[in-house]
Design a protein around this nucleic acid. Structure first.
Lengths: 148, 148
DNA sequence: ATGGTGTGTTACCGTGCTTGGTACACACGA
DNA sequence: TCGTGTGTACCAAGCACGGTAACACACCAT
């Protein structure tokens, strides 16, 4: 499986909650429970997509490149995934067969429609929404502890 | 990538167009351009999902288990794919981090919504629709040839 | 200036999944 | 009883992903 999307949203949520302070790949790796190099690779993709920037040197780290409520989950998905939930035939189907020579075009239409439906749903949520969700859950967790 | 979904729809379209005649895995493999064993493996999954049946022995082969207009692409997708377009974190995020311990629950909601949107779109098309598309494209191809 | 810090990038390896391909037992029809 | 075709097990090759280490470069503080 591909966990990059989940980790990318995780990373961006961390950046949002850091409110302007650069966050190091090592700190992020500690939260994600992986190693800093992998985080830097992911940050590289996010930076290329214009979602994050980085400050080098002491006190450096990663930052959001634009407000969290202007980063949709679709932006994230496109940044770290190839955006092809379905795979087409590996070998070209037999062009001598009436079905073989037409099936891919017929399929592509339907696959595109399904992918677009998924992407439209992803576009309805922003990193700010997810971050707010996380904060809300954290508050609930806190009050549950308090009443114990 | 995973080409099983594409191949499965291809196979079911072939079965639909054979109108009740059993189709051998060798014939199917010829149209898909792969080998019969792979086709039989796929047919096994489709049979377990109740979409196809098989006749053993001479004159045997695969058949649709129910009318093509009662088999949606979602049925096919569920039969041959694990139905998880997004992967979650491989390792559990750090429970000592306020984001780490809440991000997965927040993510799951959004991923589910996106997956449901995709599945709803897949459910709108049946194997009969795809087969009709293929036939339509084939007719157009024929008339284009005729006017050449 | 100089040392320390943290990024960006590359290379490499192990793992797991998918597919290609072979083989063989079993069921069914002629 | 023989031939046909399925169902299944098995192995090899290819590939993507994640884990890991290494290193050059940029930047800050002293």
């Amino acid at each position: 499986m591909n966990s990059r999307f989940a980790v990318a949203v995780h990373v961006l949520t961390l950046l949002e909650q850091s409110r302007g302070e650069p966050v190091t790949s090592e700190y992020i790796a500690g939260s994600v429970n992986t190693n800093p190099s992998l985080v830097r690779r992911l940050l590289g993709m996010l930076a290329r997509a214009g979602l994050t920037t980085s400050q080098l040197g002491t006190g450096g780290g990663a930052l959001l490149a634009r407000p969290a409520d202007e980063i949709t989950l679709l932006d994230v998905y496109r940044a770290v995934d190839d955006g092809a939930p379905f795979g087409m035939h590996r070998e070209r189907p037999n062009p001598a067969c009436p079905v073989g020579r037409n099936i891919q075009a017929a399929l592509e239409t339907r696959m595109d429609a399904a992918a677009r439906a998924m992407e439209a749903e992803l576009a309805r949520t922003t990193v700010a929404d997810v971050s707010a969700d996380v904060r809300r859950k954290e508050r609930r967790r806190g009050s549950a502890l308090a009443t114990r």
